[in-house]
Design a protein around this nucleic acid. Structure first.
Lengths: 174, 174
DNA sequence: GCTGGTTCTGAACAAACGTTCAGTTAACCT
DNA sequence: AGGTTAACTGAACGTTTGTTCAGAACCAGC
């Protein structure tokens, strides 16, 4: 994961990975069938973890509370795993077509959760959004971009950044 | 550019590029010194074009107008060049360290424009932002993510998407 | 028709790639 | 101590990589 995140899937050789785990060329094939499935497994684990952690969140009643819970959850989850997030956004095109479809579907389902929150909120008159799908994608793009904050040297605590981002999301949809 | 955007820098061979322009292996070295400089030139051209186009925008008086002009400009510029944008966000790590520093500096200067707009707006009492740098990065992440809209099959016109995004930015900072 | 200068071909280079596998080593159970 | 299984080594495989370069092909001006 570290190597893929740092140099990219295509730029990392099996020998580099094997060197990193302290083993000679070829030994990794006792644990994986492919270089490709190393990448796919990282993707799949990340997406499954994401969904599992989301479903484990305590339920909220009002749309506002559900949106806040989602935003704060998304921020924290992504800040805790910068490498896995990085890979999940950069290496999609290095998945084989069938593997891509699997991950794409998992991602779509996650985005659908936010979309559903926005829909019920709009129908209840709590949110003002023109298009729930576009708004959901915009929010997720903004929240996921949070990782570039720290990479660009901002010196704020997790709680501070979380507060700033949630504030922007809240205002953007009301 | 098409090949780098589609498969990634590391996954594209010189022979593929040469095949695409209709020439045999090695002929490209009459025009470039390196594979690396092909990538760097794409980056540099994109960043210079971005800054040139921004500076050519008619100036606005109030912070609100300046923010609106910036947001609409950014959306349109990025929607018109999905491939160059894609490369500029995905292939940063495939630049050599010295090339990376050059591009990083150009990017920082562009982000600085938005940051300055937010600062003057905040000082004038027009915007409510806790941290101009974090907010600037959040806005840019959201706006740049606009390209994933079309990739994910949203059927809206440029003007409609532009309106939705500008509306979210406006509300998020006031 | 020749000359001078670009531009292209296509083979060649060493290095690195993903992957396989026969053979050695280590670990565990009895 | 002996036997079975799992794990690792290190060489080998055929390809492909970025890059170089001698020679062929082309095109201008005279």
């Amino acid at each position: 994961m570290t190597l893929f995140a740092r140099h990219g899937y295509a730029a990392v050789s099996m020998r580099q990975i094997e060197g990193e785990v302290g083993v000679q060329a070829g030994a990794l094939y006792n644990y994986t069938t492919d270089k490709q499935s190393l990448l796919f497994d990282l993707f799949k684990r990340h997406m499954v973890d994401l969904r599992t952690a989301l479903d484990a969140q305590p339920p909220s009643a009002s749309p506002q509370d559900r949106l806040e819970a989602f935003a704060r959850f998304h921020i924290r989850f992504h800040l805790e795993r910068p490498q896995a997030v990085f890979i999940s956004y950069m290496e999609l095109r290095n998945l084989t077509p069938e593997n891509f479809r699997v991950i794409e579907e998992l991602r779509r389902r996650y985005e659908g959760v936010l979309e559903a929150i926005l829909e019920t909120g709009r129908d209840a008159g709590a949110f003002h959004v023109a298009d729930t799908r576009v708004t959901a994608l915009a929010i997720i793009a903004m929240l996921t971009g949070i990782n570039t904050c720290y990479r660009s040297g901002v010196r704020l605590s997790l709680a501070e950044v979380e507060a700033i981002y949630w504030d922007m999301v809240r205002k953007a949809v009301t």
